[in-house]
Structure formats: C-alpha cells, structure tokens
C-alpha cells in the first residue's frame, strides 16, 4: 500500500514497469483472443474448400461407405425452417417492439415485456427444443419441419423486439407529430412514418436474429429431427444444415467428416456475409435509423 505514495526513483521504475507489463498483458490477451478465431477460419476454409464441390449443392447424402453425395436436402431444409421461423419471429418481434416504443413507454407492462424478452433470450436452445417437443411434436406424434421452424421463430423474437424498440426510440417526436398534425391516424403514422423511418435499423435486427438462429442445432434435435432424403413436407422430419453437420461430425467416417467441413464452411460464409453486410451498411450510415 505504502509504495503508492512514495516518490523515490525505485517507485517510479516500479510504476512504469507495471504500466508496461499491463500494456503487454492487454496486447497478449488480444492476440490470444484473435488467434483461435483465425485458427478456426483458416482451418475451416482449408478443410471446407477442399471438400466443397458442385455435388455438395445438388446431391443428397449417400449411404455410409459410398463416396460422393452432398447436402442439397439440408440446404433446402434449412431454408424452409428459417422461412417458417422468420414468418413467426419477424411479425411478432416487430409488433412487440412497436408496443414497447410507441404504446408502452416506461410503463410497468412494457418493463415486464422487456424483462420477459430477456428471459426468452437467455433460455438455453436445448430447453427450447424440449419445450417445442412437448408442445408440438408429442401431440402430433411425429417430428416435423413445422415444429423446428416454430422453435427457431421463437428464438428470433427477443432480438428483433429489442432492436425494433431501440430503433423506434431514435425516431424524433417531431416526425410523429407532423404526421398526426396532417390528420394521419395514429396507426397509419406508426406504420408508414415511424416504422419506415426506422426500417433500416429494424432490418438489421432481423438479419442478426436470422444469422443467430441459422446455426442453431440444439432446438432442432427433437423437432425437425433431420432427414437423409428429400423432403419439403412441413409435416415430416426435415434435414437442416447444422443438424447434418452434427451427425456427420460425430460419425466415424472420413467421407462424412469431409462433408461436415464443407457444410460448416457454407454455413459460416452465409452467416458472416449477413453479419458483415449488416455491419458494413450500418457503419456507413445508410441503414442508420434517424437520430
């Protein structure tokens, strides 16, 4: 303790040494954080690119032992699941955000909704899987694409709600009042003035939610279940890219490992593209909601 208040030469050296050491440690930890990221990406690109070919995109999986095959059904399945998810998550998410920003400002109800959305956000994805299993799969008595889509949709809601609220709060009051002053009904002003002004930011939120659930595996394990064959029937088990990657990764076959890497690369490229697109456009200010 006492050394802090001394001003001798030794103290000066000690202080400056700790200062440099702290800088060194901060730099070191930054390197240690960035290193695994780069390691994962390099390895993924190296492994994935060497296993990626046209067949991956147009063929369905082959039986064990047969070389070749692809994940066409899983790609289509993922697209379907994400489509159902967006149909559920986007409208509910945006509407809840509108409620929080336009109608519930600061009220107890709004705080409760906000807190519940946070709770929903924190629900482990595997628990979501169990819940949807017992809500939809058990009564229906079969796994289905619909159940998987609902699980993903519910997981999208909290992210969209919170970004929508944040974006709407940035829209200045004067705009709303101008609309009302012109005799525009309130619902119309919310839809075509406020939401429209904030739409770029809201789209960003939707993209982020989309990217987040695109890679989810755990909620699909007991809902969409996976499928080795073509299926576009919403009432049947359906393949999904992350599920297929999981099944192939824990299998003992090299050929399947190869496909898992290719699948991961495709998934990552999709996700990173959407995230960086969002980031690029938002930092450019084009998509920023009005201040």
């Amino acid at each position: 303790m006492s050394s802090r208040y001394k001003t001798g030469k030794a103290t000066q050296i000690w202080r400056s040494a700790t200062n440099h050491m702290a800088t060194g440690l901060a730099v070191l930890s930054t390197v240690l954080v960035v290193a695994p990221l780069i390691a994962i990406f390099v390895y993924l690109i190296y492994k994935g690119a060497s296993s990626l070919n046209l067949a991956f995109f147009i063929k369905t999986p082959r039986a064990v032992g047969e070389p070749g095959g692809g994940m066409a059904n899983a790609i289509v399945g993922s697209a379907l699941l994400l489509g159902i998810g967006s149909l559920i998550g986007v409208p509910i998410g945006i509407a809840s955000g509108v409620f929080l920003a336009e109608f519930g400002r600061g009220g107890k109800l709004a705080n409760a909704v906000r807190f519940t959305a946070d709770v929903l956000n924190g629900v482990p994805s595997i628990v979501m899987g169990i819940a949807i299993y017992s809500l939809i799969v058990l009564p229906q008595k079969h796994f289905s694409a619909l159940a998987g889509g609902v699980a993903l949709g519910i997981m999208m809601i909290p992210t969209i709600t919170r970004t929508t609220e944040e974006m709407l709060l940035m829209v200045p009051h004067s705009i709303r009042e101008a609309a009302l002053g012109l005799g525009v009904p309130n619902w119309r002003s919310v839809l075509s003035i406020t939401l429209k002004t904030a739409s770029p930011g809201i789209i960003t939120g939707c993209m982020l939610a989309f990217a987040r659930v695109a890679g989810e595996t755990a909620p699909l394990l007991f809902t969409a279940f996976g499928n080795q064959f073509w299926s576009a029937n919403l009432n049947e088990p359906i393949a999904a890219l992350p599920l297929q990657i999981y099944v192939y990764a824990i299998s003992p076959y090299d050929e399947w490992h190869r496909l898992a890497w290719a699948g991961s690369l495709v998934l990552i490229v999709l996700i990173v593209l959407s995230v960086s697109l969002v980031r690029f456009v938002t930092t450019r200010g084009v998509l920023k909601g009005a201040n």
């Binding site: 960035v34 994962i40 390895y43 595996t217 755990a218 990657i245 998934l267 996700i271 980031r279």
Partner: peptide, 16 residues
C-alpha cells in the same frame, strides 16, 4: 473480430 467469434455456430465450434 471479437463479434465474429459470437457469430460462429456452436456446432462449428464443436467440429473444430
């Protein structure tokens, strides 16, 4: 870059 770490799906982390 640190945010990108959050964007990688769990199953890809597992594979790696």
């Amino acid at each position: 870059l640190t945010e990108l770490l959050a964007a990688i799906p769990s199953v890809v982390y597992g594979l790696w």
